[in-house]
């Protein structure tokens, strides 16, 4: 086969054979090389958390990836293709100009508290812009009820950086880890915790922080309605979701009230980390 083997003579068969297989092997080798280059590139540019979010988003089911404008009734059906980064979305500015069409849900009926002075991230955190230029990050009311009283939390230290859709902190409930996504980019300046109303105070890394992806105003209740529906389906099958079905107020400590539920699975869906 090869020129250095005794008595070798090239034939058309050899040339064809070697060319075809050479091309196949070369294609595979080049592709693997490109993959490794791209991996190294992510490391060089410190984009690991970003990739993790992209990957998690990809793993979410179609139902979990609905566009915020669908939830707000601005468009009948639309799946998000930008990993919930509305700043990157071309259609987002157009939709934003349309008046939301859904009837606002009375959050009070569920006993939920979603103050209007905040922006909400789809991973159940909120951001409040403070006068001193910092941003306060906390867990929203539904997130709080999902976790109940966490066994412990792992917070970043002041000086650590958090990046949007990366891990902000970890909470543990009944040995189930929950990766809570950060709604914004920033450097941690102070930490709170489950006992306080807030978890992190961050200083934005950029002068004009990108907040386009955060939900605000009447959108919030529309989104929350869908979230409660999702939760209903999740706990309806994984546990006895009687409280929600009856339209009663949401319990303060859901895992405590429904220990039979597979909360690990529910957390994966609700906190967008499948």
């Amino acid at each position: 086969m090869f020129p250095f083997v005794d008595g070798f003579q090239w034939t058309f068969g050899h040339i064809l054979f070697l060319t075809v297989f050479g091309m196949v092997v070369a294609t595979m080798a080049v592709t693997l090389f490109v993959v490794i280059q791209r991996v190294l590139d992510h490391y060089r540019k410190d984009r690991v958390e970003h990739v993790q979010w992209q990957s998690d988003f990809h793993d979410l089911s179609e139902m979990d990836r609905r566009c915020r404008h669908e939830l707000a009734g601005r468009v009948p059906r639309r799946e998000c293709h930008n990993a919930f980064d509305c700043g990157e979305c071309r259609e987002h500015p157009k939709f934003e100009k349309i008046e939301p069409a859904t009837t606002a849900l009375s959050l009070e009926a569920f006993g939920l508290d979603f103050p209007a002075d905040r922006l909400y991230h789809r991973g159940h955190t909120w951001v409040r812009l403070e006068d001193d230029g910092t941003m306060t990050i906390g867990l929203d009311d539904l997130g709080k009820r999902l976790l109940g009283a966490p066994d412990r939390v792992e917070l970043p230290k002041p000086g650590d950086e958090v990046s949007v859709n990366g891990a902000a902190w970890y909470a543990f409930r009944n040995e189930t880890p929950v990766r809570v996504l950060s709604p914004v980019d920033g450097v941690v300046v102070a930490t709170g915790g489950p006992d306080q109303d807030w978890y992190l105070k961050v200083r934005p890394t950029r002068a004009n922080p990108n907040l386009a992806h955060l939900l605000r105003g009447p959108e919030v209740s529309a989104w929350l309605r869908r979230e409660l529906e999702r939760l209903q389906i999740l706990v309806g099958v994984t546990g006895a979701g009687a409280a929600l079905a009856d339209g009663g107020a949401l319990m303060e400590d859901l895992p405590g009230a429904q220990p039979e539920t597979n909360w690990d699975g529910v957390y994966g869906k609700m906190f967008l980390a499948p």
Partner: peptide, 27 residues
């Protein structure tokens, strides 16, 4: 998945999977 390098490698490999699928079809 919780090992970052695995995750990043998986993500990039997954994106180029059509190339391997194409090679697989040919072979």
């Amino acid at each position: 998945k919780s090992i970052p390098s695995f995750l990043v490698f998986e993500w990039e490999l997954h994106k180029l999977m059509p190339v391997f699928a194409g090679v697989g079809v040919f072979l």
